[in-house]
Write a protein that binds this DNA or RNA. Structure first.
Lengths: 170, 170
DNA sequence: CTTGGAATGTCAACAACACTGACTTAAACT
DNA sequence: AGTTTAAGTCAGTGTTGTTGACATTCCAAG
């Protein structure tokens, strides 16, 4: 390990020859791009006194209205206590509504209120705008490659959530 | 804004037609992939009582040995004080060495010690391994597209740092 | 040569958000 | 009746970010 240019030859596969340097560039690209990815939402959230955790909750509740807390926990990959702090403020501020389950009264189903939808849309739009610009600049082929690499980079359990969400409307 | 499927038509460009749904999937892919991206390093860091901030410092000092604090500040995009706390522990633990500048004694030049290089290499290798696997699974064309989209997603000033680092050895 | 401003880096205190662990409440299952 | 599951709460801790105040060094104007 860490022997300079020899990286990527371990598996003995001839298909794709990857130097450590190429991989490092991919890693750094991921780092810098993710900062750009979160920059616009962060600016809007800050005005409202919220953080990224609030955005993530809003996004996935918007994506899967009526989801329960347990499911959201799995998607977000945080602890119950951590999510609860965020969810409580969103409910207090009237952005999220929590309804007791009909079939199973232990469950709480989460929905965005009108006010919550407004903020979620505002954030989603600036984030889409950046993604749209990047997609257009890179071109159609690139977009496909981008998605393929990202999906291959996910942990299998995370990928399961991703596919469950994506499958609904494509 | 937020009018369902009409997103992407604003610019009136015919080249790439992007629905809000396609963009949302890209956004979510970015979210889940970044978690995978940081998962392996996080496991190693935890064993040593470090966090992501320590990794970022180690990575960029390794990448640009002898860099000063100000430059590192620009790359990492955090405040001086925040970086300093991390740097102090790394220096105390003997992973990083801080040398007073020769020409300008206000500057501190940063280097990894042997011990620092060992940890940095260990983390870099697991991160490269995941990137390598993802690249191989996605294929050559996809890798190129992946990089193009990421670069287009960066803020211009962040992209400047990225290019400055990348330009050195490709 | 001195003085004052700019640049570099450090120290202290505080806020946000994640975590663990222990516990309660309510409903469902067996 | 007893166990499990879903959700929420309380207390404590750690990392990482922030602002504000401060020390040191350099440089240039007077």
């Amino acid at each position: 390990m860490a022997d300079g240019k020899a990286g990527g030859t371990k598996g003995g596969e001839a298909l794709l020859f990857l130097t450590d340097e190429q991989l490092r560039k991919g890693i750094e690209a991921m780092f810098f791009a993710y900062r750009g990815f979160t920059a616009d939402p962060d600016r809007i959230l800050e005005k409202h006194g919220y953080g990224r955790a609030h955005h993530r909750a809003l996004h996935f509740i918007s994506r899967a209205p009526g989801t329960n807390v347990n499911n959201l926990l799995g998607i977000l990959g945080v602890t119950k206590q951590s999510l609860n702090r965020v969810l409580r403020t969103l409910i207090e501020d009237g952005l999220v509504e929590s309804r007791v389950g009909v079939q199973d009264k232990r469950e709480r189903h989460l929905y965005l209120t009108e006010k919550g939808k407004v903020l979620e849309s505002e954030i989603a739009e600036v984030q889409r705008a950046r993604m749209r610009a990047a997609y257009r600049e890179a071109g159609h082929e690139a977009v496909s490659g981008f998605r393929q690499v990202l999906e291959a980079m996910m942990d299998p359990d995370q990928a399961a959530f991703f596919n469950a969400l994506s499958g609904k409307e494509e």
